[in-house]
Design a protein around this nucleic acid. Structure first.
Lengths: 357, 357
DNA sequence: CTGTTAGCGCATTCAA
DNA sequence: TTGAATGCGCTAACAG
């Protein structure tokens, strides 16, 4: 059997209460006694039972994170940021994923609540679809924050990056490069990230007097592959802004399969700056997202919520920036870049990136 | 306040025990009563408190997974496999990581035990260093299994892949390709994966009458970069077997920086078959590891342990196979491949891979 | 089929 | 500075 405070109490010859106090560094225990208790705990290999402690104190120091899946390192970077803050504040993170299924999402959230998490950080696979369910969390008095994607019909605190502005950066860059037929491989329109990026693209196209060419293909590499082929069958664009890096990778693969060169025949810009973007066949120009910072921001917001320091109506949008590599053709053609852009030299390891100019 | 079984009991006008039974689908409750209770639970938005349940039943349905870090998708694939099995068996997975620090590893494991996990799945960042600590887990009667890396001095159940055999596949392939100076960028020799892969390499080199050229650089992209430069300053090999894909990526980058072509000037083979391997500047020939399957295998072993069906001395080594892409030069030169090898056509999405021949 | 008693391991509250 | 009583929410064991 595992040792309990009772065992320690008998060993030392005091009450369980004194042991409990000593182990938690509660005040009201003499230093000599504390030492004797600590030694006994060590000797008996004592481990506090957090179930029992949580049951009585109503504090589990557990926070639940729900993400769509574990397959994309994208989410993991956010979790890394969350973990960093959580650990610093003494919390353990319980990670769940929905496999992009709204039903499973509800099930997992209920399971998290049953495990008595003190707060919920949710990147919903479909916030609008699960809006009414998510809104019940408020009534259950469990602090919940959405991240990366939000629901229009729901007022929960939210942390994401400024997708519309990011899409503007990408599109403005392609306009600046002088392309004539700039298309957009748009993401899932049921997700705010998909809608907002499309919005940013359309704005810039309109402002610059271009005709928008939109192919909604959803996220993911295979969707990018198919979307690219459909797009080319109809429009033969000379540049594409893909709504996500995997979409861009699929598009690049399709381009190669069709015998097209990147960026000579078709320029490509992605969104995310995933780890592999710089390693790609043709290094990818893309919109960088502050993934770990985003995780830290959500976690910090939750900590404020737990301390009652923050209201329910926070809506944080983190800035993005452009990372210019080979796939857009700007470097080859000496296109002037904005000050905020980052130029990546993909052929040397250190420094990986240099701020332009 | 959150509803409890007591609230439901009052609502329905029965005892808490009947409610408890009904909610757990325990037998001995009439169907009519069960329905009334279920409806009341629904109405009150009842969620069982798993802390309380776990405290009394001594079953938390929690298993703890400890991995070195969250940064490499490598680990996540294993976690995906673990989760799949765990979820099927009704368990929740609590993921922790040590940031490759043996001290943190011990701390995290203690924390997991405090949370009353029923079993521990550990990819130790340094099994030999933490061997004595890990051996205490047996005394504490908590089922523990190592995966991916094992300790020589410790007899815990283990699941990994056959690193020595995998290294043989890679080295034999380079020998078959006709390279003369085949070097090995060896991984961390404090880890079984590093040692076993070096061993497999040395065996084949000896058997085929080649002189081994070994540069121990450790794992990771930057180590691969530096290791490659050191290697070339001394030996000018015409082929390199890298102990891990990131090492190969660093090496490839170094080769480009030095103006060398892959595979024409130097051939490259990696180990892991990470997601990005096929997307690389030059698609990487590498030893594929059954990452998700490995996760499922560890989890299944743990389930058997929990049911008392399996002993403590299981040592499972899963087979690997070679994935041939461009970086080794075999395809360009029409080198005959073994039946088990997989040839990847990197320029089309579907099918991604074709079994050779 | 249903209820009662007891207690999981710990911390809160009050009393000494 | 220490201890006793109480109960967190739930279930095992037994009784009816």
């Amino acid at each position: 059997m595992r040792a309990t405070i009772k065992n320690i109490a008998e060993e030392v010859g005091v009450s369980a209460m004194t042991v409990s106090r000593a182990l938690r560094n509660d005040k009201g225990v003499s230093e000599a006694m504390r030492q004797r208790i600590l030694q006994a705990a060590e000797r008996l290999n004592y481990r506090p039972n957090l179930l029992a402690r949580g049951l009585v104190s109503q504090r589990t120091y557990l926070i639940g994170v729900l993400i769509p899946n574990l397959r994309h390192s994208f989410w993991l970077h956010m979790v890394i940021g969350i973990e960093e803050v959580a650990k610093r504040e003494g919390y353990t993170v319980l990670i769940c994923h929905s496999d992009d299924d709204p039903q499973i999402e509800q099930k997992e959230i209920r399971s998290l609540i049953s495990r008595q998490v003190e707060a919920l950080l949710i990147a919903s696979c479909n916030p609008d679809c699960n809006a009414s369910f998510l809104s019940t969390l408020q009534q259950e008095h469990i602090p919940a924050v959405l991240f990366d994607r939000y629901a229009r019909t729901l007022s929960l605190p939210y942390v994401g990056c400024d997708d519309r502005a990011g899409a503007r950066l990408a599109t403005e860059h392609l306009v600046r490069c002088g392309y004539r037929k700039i298309a957009h491989l748009a993401g899932d329109q049921s997700l705010s990230v998909g809608r907002d990026r499309l919005l940013g693209y359309e704005e810039v196209m309109q402002e610059s007097g271009h005709q928008p060419i939109v192919e909604v293909c959803g996220f993911g590499e295979e969707n990018g592959y198919k979307g690219f082929r459909r797009l080319f069958a109809k429009h033969c664009p000379d540049a594409i802004f893909a709504s996500h890096d995997p979409v861009a990778i699929g598009a690049m693969r399709a381009a190669f399969d069709m015998g097209l060169r990147v960026p000579d025949d078709v320029a490509l810009v992605g969104f995310a700056d995933m780890d592999c973007a710089e390693h790609l066949w043709v290094p990818l120009t893309t919109v960088w997202q502050p993934k770990e910072e985003l995780g830290r921001a959500v976690a910090n917001l939750v900590m404020r919520l737990l301390r009652g320091e923050s209201g329910i109506d926070e809506h944080i949008a983190l800035p993005t920036h452009l990372v210019v590599r080979q796939s857009c053709g700007a470097l080859q053609h000496g296109v002037p870049l904005p000050k905020e852009a980052v130029v990546a030299s993909n052929r040397s390891l250190s420094p990986k990136k240099e701020v332009y100019p």
